[in-house]
């Protein structure tokens, strides 16, 4: 959501100034139609009354939010208390996304560092190699991963073949498999922004620090990391946010035994038992959480400066 800065008032730009508004129109039209309108629609739907078997009735209702936060027991006649079901599902999704982001950072940072420190000519080849798996559709990559880690799949056959394990490691249908799937799906989103940041880093700064007797760890912590931090944060956001709403990996690799935010929303819109306002409300709550954390981050950045 890059803000469209006000057009410059310097002499050279002045000639363009009268045209600024009409030239911006297409951009605003696209943002309005494809971003603001759908989000607005979702917010509106979350406050409507559910129509039985899908659809909405145009009457204001807080039922969707009530269902999310307030529990009245299975039969709806117990005293109201906090509904932990959906908070629990959110918590699990947050945790899965956090682990996947951590894994991506662990592998992505050294990878990006490695690429950025190659001679310029070979960097593009390394970047190209990183993107190759992503020419394949996400669904197919996820199914392939399942094939690799299943009980009688190549990984387990290999581990048993070399005698490292006596039986197959139970990987498929576990949380670990989900995290692995998310990690695998979104790794390049971590590598590319960090690469962009490290590439711009002036390595003379590290040398200067070393000349002043800073240890390598201290150089990394106090010189390098602050400079490449925006890249790391961008990478983390790009991995964390889509992981939060993912439902392909949880369904295929995790065995769909427990709802994640993505599959919970999906369930509200498909099938004959759908509950559109509730699905919209979950989406609004999820989006508010993401927005809040972004705002929090932006404020932290500003106060640091």
């Amino acid at each position: 959501m890059a803000g469209a800065g006000p057009s410059g008032k310097s002499g050279k730009d002045a000639a363009w100034a009268p045209l600024a508004l009409p030239l911006m129109l297409p951009t605003w039209a696209v943002i309005g139609f494809f971003l603001l309108l759908p989000v607005l629609l979702m917010v509106v739907y979350s406050f409507l009354t559910k129509e039985f078997r899908g659809g909405v009735i145009w009457e204001f209702s807080l039922a969707a939010y009530d269902q999310f936060f307030i529990s009245r027991g299975l039969f709806g006649d117990e005293p109201a208390s906090i509904e932990w079901t959906y908070i629990g599902i959110f918590w699990r999704s947050l945790w899965q996304a956090a682990v996947a982001t951590g894994l991506c950072l662990l592998i992505g940072f050294p990878t990006a560092w490695f690429i950025a420190t190659r001679p310029p000519a070979s960097r593009s080849i390394w970047l190209f190699l990183v993107t190759i798996p992503y020419w394949v559709n996400l669904l197919i990559r996820t199914v392939s991963l399942k094939f690799l880690i299943r009980d009688n799949g190549p990984l387990n056959e290999f581990l048993m073949g070399i005698g490292l394990t006596s039986g197959p490691l139970p990987l498929v249908n576990t949380n670990l498999a989900v995290q692995l799937g998310l990690f695998y799906s979104y790794l390049p989103f971590m590598v590319l922004p960090i690469y962009a940041a490290v590439e711009r880093y002036n390595f003379a700064l590290s040398e200067a620090a070393a000349d002043l007797y800073a240890s390598r760890w201290r150089t990394l912590r106090e010189i390098t990391l602050p400079v490449v931090k925006p890249g790391i944060i961008a990478g983390c956001l790009l991995v964390f946010i889509p992981s939060l709403g993912a439902f392909l990996a949880p369904d295929l690799l995790g065995g769909a035994k427990t709802f994640m935010i993505g599959s919970l929303i999906d369930e509200q819109f498909k099938g004959s038992q759908g509950n559109w306002p509730f699905g919209a409300a979950i989406s609004v709550i999820l989006m508010s959480l993401v927005l809040l954390s972004l705002l929090f981050y932006a404020r932290a950045q500003r106060s640091q400066k």
Binding site: L74, T85, G88, I89, A256, K257, T258, F259, Q273, N275
Partner: peptide, 9 residues
């Protein structure tokens, strides 16, 4: 619906 959600929560 509630039973199903409880089963999969």
């Amino acid at each position: 619906d509630a039973i199903w959600t409880n089963l999969k929560k």
